[in-house]
Write a protein that binds this DNA or RNA. Sequence first.
RNA 1: CCGCCCUUAGCUCAGACUGGUAGAGCAGUCGACUGUAGAUCGACUUGUCCCCCGUUCAAAUCGGGGAGGGCGGACCA
Length: 347
Amino acid sequence: MGMDTAERVALVARHTEEVVTEEELRGLLEETEEPTAYIGYAPTGEMHIGHFTTMRKLADFVEAGLDVTVLVADLHAHLDDEKSPLELLDARSEYYRIAIEGMVEAAGADPDAVTFTRGTDYQLEEPYTLELYRLLADTTISRAQRAGSEVVRQSENPKLGGLVYTLMQSLDVATLEADIAYGGIDQRGIYMLAREMLPDHGFGKPLCVFAPLLSGLSGGKQSSSDRSSGVFLTDDTETVEEKIDGAYCPAGEVADNGVLEYLQRLVFPILGVRDEPFVVERPEEYGGDLTYESYEPLEADFVSGDLHPADLKPAAAAAIDEVIGPVRDRLLDRPDLLARAYPESRD
RNA sequence: CCGCCCUUAGCUCAGACUGGUAGAGCAGUCGACUGUAGAUCGACUUGUCCCCCGUUCAAAUCGGGGAGGGCGGACCA
């Protein structure tokens, strides 16, 4: 590919919350033919649209020539307050893999360009375990707690698992030989710990790319334990419409506006890949239909009041529904898998 | 190994001493008002009171046993 370093840097860094550091990224892409990037997902609850927006970036990585690995961190799913019982790790790992492949494909990349690995593939082996013990011996409780405070479930009586979690995730970066650790900005604490600890243990210092997190539809943060806080990949069309219709969306306001964020971070990037516009159908009495090629003009119209939430919402719901459609079809095609992965919550 | 405390609505908890099959706040649902949602009013829903046995006309409440969770002590060749 004829992409120069500046273009690759821009591609890797676009639509991110933070890159640590940009200088290191430039250096890496200059010196390394095919740098490696990894992202880990703990297979806990059902996947939602927030996962999708984070995942979409993998298409940029692939296009920029990175070697991308997705870790399905099954042991982490158990270590974090037993969110997933050990018996369900196989089923949930498979569900996550299929969902992730679907999202990567929907984002316009070839799922085969992404390497999948599972935590249990290597985290129980001796070299990893021994190195983990070294890290455990070398890390204070408060340091590990602080690193994981945005990721691991917090409680009045925290378990040791949540502390080991952060060290394992740090060690994963080294074990998977990732030049770049990628994740949501909530992962920042853990990867800063990794940057601090790994060099002391003879490993390289990873650079980090962080994706922004989506607001929930009710204004707060999106939560996978609250089904109404966001759109899930298995939500049907009617549910998507209801959720978007019920979303917090004050006219003219961008802050904490989940509908706008979904459009900016998910819908437009994917429409962009397909070279399709976003169309708002609007009654003549309010000015007729609108067409947007990119997010910025839409936000401008929204802020100025030219685009009313009541017109935006149905259009957004339709677009979101269409975007998740292929992933949903893949998942609903495997009702057995969903039933095994989530035996309690499925009908 | 010993002792003490906790377990009630989705969440945080009151009620237990002085037995009469349960309440508040938040959340949620539904209306009103907005060309959406929210905010604000108005209305409404929610329970194996951790489990088992016993006392009693009657047990969330009293007694015994058990489970889960928390705290402390003891042991330390």
